[in-house]
Write a protein that binds this DNA or RNA. Structure first.
Lengths: 372, 372
DNA sequence: GCAATTTGCCAAAACGTTTTAGTGGTCTAT
DNA sequence: ATAGACCACTAAAACGTTTTGGCAAATTGC
């Protein structure tokens, strides 16, 4: 009868055994097959029998054991999201916003989210574990870099996944993203057509693809307008919070020719506002920013002063889980989803000077975003 | 052979069948029993056989199917954490901080976190689901109210759970908390003994137990020092962020007799600092605050100006998951864990005037926290 | 009225593990 | 020598579902 294991291990939890499909079958005088099929909506169960089963299940409090279901169906209805465990990562309000959207969507779709963290050095091993131990059906990947090894791995493992954001590859895969390039290109063009000749762009960490594409967009818009490269000053904040917004704005305004500020995040824009104010009333600086609709910060005091590219990160989170679940249910490659964004103009800004209408709602493929 | 179900349902995912224990047994010419026991560290497997099994498993890439394991062992190695899905909740940096700790601890203990959200109206139904469908072993509960219905339910369901914070009940249950009452009592006493005669307490939402106990502590310290109840002005912020810190501080300073400010959160203390500064140099106000070691905000510019009760929310998160896993493995009631906190004094503050030494590290039961 | 079809139900296999209850063989002590 | 203990291994049952492949009765078509 087997000696004890060396490690402490598996003390069975003292759970009151719950009611099984067998109990319900016995209670109703039906086979477990019929119970199962009645509950799963098969058409070969009579209507009154189905009602009896449903009522009986409610009465006895029968709930299918999900682990038995998962074992036989090979589908867990779980998806994994792995965060890097470095001190800074978790404090990012953008992450929390996407998370809220993912959870809301997962609830509606009857999926559960397995959230995990791993230190960068072991990051891939946790993907390896989830891929091989059958505990999740798919993956959410956040903040991709330009050629992200997580995507390499998941593509080669043939597992469903959706990236929030995009990396540069041209293969088909699941992603949800705003049109970073198009939006920042148009925004910059707008600034230029409003007469600005020197623009400071306060961007995020360009190790991440989103920041890289935004930089390219701003740069291209400047070039396409016939301005010299020196018309653009780029500043990067490696951390989404802290005093970078203030400091970089202060730095940017050291150049007296700078008349327009573009921010990659409303957090930095708001912090930077203090620096703009403090720089004195002699400066009339135009401010534009990405507005991710962070619940974290109240942007209403600034809405008339900031021109904004507006897009909801919660919506993005919901779209991420929706596409992931779609992939789990339909064979075939992942799809890209562009989250619409709107332009909200600061008072006194005229958006009509653009040659083309502003891209209020616009869909386009990842291919169209490649710079020429 | 069964008609199709009415709902779309279960398209089987096209997964490459993974290697099972049977495959490994066949490869090595051993029984599956031996494989299982070798891998699980039982002592009735010969040493060279065990090595053969371990090597073979590595070579074939064998990973036990977790759902099969969960089915037979009745333990999932999953714990659930349900957040309320109201717009404000997710943006709270305190939550994210605890989350980071929980995830770090879970990783070390080989558990996974299932994170879910639910709108308040349906909040209990999701607990009901997790309790009855065998998808988790236990629960994390955050931000308890005074008589929290979630605890009622989980106690009656006899499921392991750990609360971050405490509610008022006297039964044994798992919780992790700082000594809110003791810390705020001592802090207030310190302020009083440093000569302050009118104190403003800028607290959180007293619908939550932590804020309630802090209020009681401050109030009791005032009374025990022989001051009139009017010596205390309490302000409550219902939201952890936004401009409440500034506004309430401004309000508090309307009373010219107020010379000391106590904050329940460093977020509000930092925001409030602007109001203190703006109120003019004529006011010499002492500031004390809870310091949860939020990575979200950099408190170093203020460390010499704020007296702080310092305690790490990440440590608390790690303790939560540790206690929860302990409960899953050992039968018996949950335990309470007090997270130590330290006092860090602002420059010029003398802590020695207290009758008793400051409670740098101190353990006490929930009973001792009841007010007399 | 009879064959063909449809309807409504079911027994058994399967999913991939762990656990139970052994079984032979090799030591050790007498 | 021999009984008992121990060692190293295993066949079969169990966990709770879904799915497969039927089958008998009821309905339909002619």
């Amino acid at each position: 009868m087997g000696r004890k294991p060396n490690q402490p291990a598996a003390t069975p939890a003292a759970l009151t055994r719950s009611v099984t499909i067998k109990d319900l079958a016995a209670e109703l005088g039906l086979s477990i097959t019929t119970i199962s099929r009645a509950l799963n909506g098969y058409s070969d169960v009579g209507e009154k029998t189905r009602r009896r089963v449903v009522d009986g299940a409610a009465k006895l409090g029968y709930r299918p054991n999900r682990n038995a279901q998962r074992l036989v169906t090979r589908r867990t209805h779980n998806v994994a999201w792995v965060q890097q465990d470095n001190d800074r990562k978790f404090v990012d309000p953008h992450f929390v916003e996407v998370l809220a959207g993912v959870l809301r969507g997962a609830r509606a779709l009857n999926y559960d989210l397995v959230l995990a963290s791993e230190i960068p050095a072991h990051e891939m091993s946790i993907y390896d574990r989830y891929v091989n131990d059958n505990s999740v059906d798919g993956f959410i990947v956040d903040l991709p870099r330009e050629n992200d090894k997580r995507l390499d791995y998941l593509l080669s493992a043939h597992r469903p996944f959706v990236v929030h954001g995009r990396d540069g590859r041209s293969e088909d895969y699941g992603w949800v993203d705003i049109d970073n390039y198009g939006n920042f290109y148009n925004l910059t063009r707008l600034m230029i057509s409003n007469g600005h000749k020197r623009i400071a762009f306060i961007n995020g960490d360009e190790a991440f693809a989103y920041a890289l594409w935004r930089h390219r967009a701003v740069r291209d818009a400047i070039a396409d307008a016939g301005l010299a490269p020196s018309a653009l000053k780029v500043f990067n904040s490696l951390h989404p919070m802290g005093d970078a917004g203030y400091k970089l704005t202060h730095l940017a305004l050291n150049d007296p020719k700078v008349t327009a500020l573009i921010y990659s995040s409303s957090l930095m824009a708001v912090e930077g506002h203090a620096a703009v104010v403090r720089s004195g009333m002699d400066r009339n600086v135009a401010v534009a920013t990405m507005d991710d609709e962070l619940h974290y910060i109240d942007l209403t005091p600034f809405t008339s002063q900031f021109t904004r590219i507006r897009s909801s990160l919660r919506d993005a989170g919901e779209a991420v889980i929706a596409e992931l679940v779609r992939q789990c249910n339909e064979p075939g490659p992942g799809r890209g989803v562009v989250i619409p964004s709107t332009f909200e103009l600061a008072q006194g800004i005229d958006g009509t000077v653009l040659e083309h209408p502003l891209p209020a709602k616009r869909r386009q493929t990842s291919r169209r975003l490649q710079p020429a």
